[in-house]
């Protein structure tokens, strides 16, 4: 049979190779302009610590990897020596990763169940409305009195931040499941609520769930730095610590390190997302 195939779905890459090159060059130009403005600004500002220059900051960044620092690994309690920048990044990750994963897990779980079950939604919706607007950092006082200033307290703050973003991703995703798909599944033998959630609601909500998670990766970096400004160890704390010694270039180096860490995670997750959502 001569089956007609209008498979016009292959992604159209924006522009040709030449177009891409032009866009890269423009982007590079923008960065150069920024560096020049930064450099001129640093040269013309007194006292010099107000705006550390690009070269000075780059040198401070390199220093992060040429010196080494020993940190305590939580849980095991053992000591570990790493290049200074990586050591403080590891400290941040010790509370960032558990907070993010646990918060995302709980948020997605509650979002799915609440989006799916009307009764539960009726019960919890008003509570969610009240708790949701509280900025995660406002919980810092409880983090401190409950867990103290350390990895656990900071993880708790990150947890709160990750929780709500992922909750809304999953909740919205499940609410948007098409009735036609659940009808189709019903006629194909899906007769239990839990099977419907697993076989139809969850895969159908996957794009929103993953978008929620990706958003929370970025948001939690903002939150984690905030939590560390109160004293938990990590890159955020080092930004403050360096500025207390007027080593502003080191602060800039840590800021750049955070940017790099976030960029790596975001790109990594985007690649994963593209694989998982190949059907879209």
């Amino acid at each position: 049979m001569s089956t007609r195939t209008d498979t016009s779905s292959s992604p159209v890459v924006a522009g040709s190779f030449e177009g891409d090159l032009k866009r890269y060059l423009r982007g590079l130009g923008g960065l150069l302009v920024f560096l020049v403005v930064w450099w001129v600004g640093s040269m013309t500002t007194q006292p010099s610590y107000l705006v550390p220059g690009p070269l000075e900051s780059a040198r401070a960044f390199v220093d992060l990897f040429t010196t080494s620092t020993a940190i305590i690994v939580p849980v095991t309690g053992s000591s570990m020596a790493l290049p200074t920048g990586l050591a403080h990044l590891a400290q941040t990750l010790f509370h960032y990763v558990p907070g993010l994963l646990l918060g995302a897990g709980c948020g997605i779980g509650l979002g799915l169940v609440m989006g799916w079950n009307q009764l539960l939604d009726d019960w919890i919706q008003p509570l969610v409305r009240v708790l949701r607007p509280i900025p995660p950092l406002a919980w810092i006082v409880f983090a401190i009195v409950w867990f103290g200033i350390g990895h656990t307290g900071a993880a708790f703050i990150v947890f709160v931040g990750a929780f709500w973003i992922n909750f809304y991703g999953a909740y919205g995703g499940v609410e948007g499941v098409s009735g036609e798909l659940t009808d189709a599944a019903s006629t194909l033998g899906v007769d239990r609520d839990l099977s419907m959630l697993k076989l139809v609601a969850l895969p159908s909500a996957a794009p929103q769930v993953l978008t929620g998670f990706r958003t929370s990766i970025g948001r939690c970096w903002m939150i984690v730095v905030g939590a560390e400004l109160f004293g938990a160890p990590g890159v955020g704390y080092e930004i403050i610590n360096a500025s207390n010694n007027l080593a502003m270039a080191t602060s800039v180096a840590y800021m750049f390190l955070i940017s790099l860490a976030f960029l790596c995670m975001d790109v990594g997750f985007r690649l994963l997302e593209r694989r998982v959502l190949a059907w879209r």
Partner: peptide
């Protein structure tokens, strides 16, 4: 029930 199969106007295929 599985004794009755249904075909939908807008296909209702599972896109994933």
């Amino acid at each position: 029930g599985l004794d009755r199969g249904m075909v939908f106007q807008e296909y209702a295929l599972f896109p994933w």
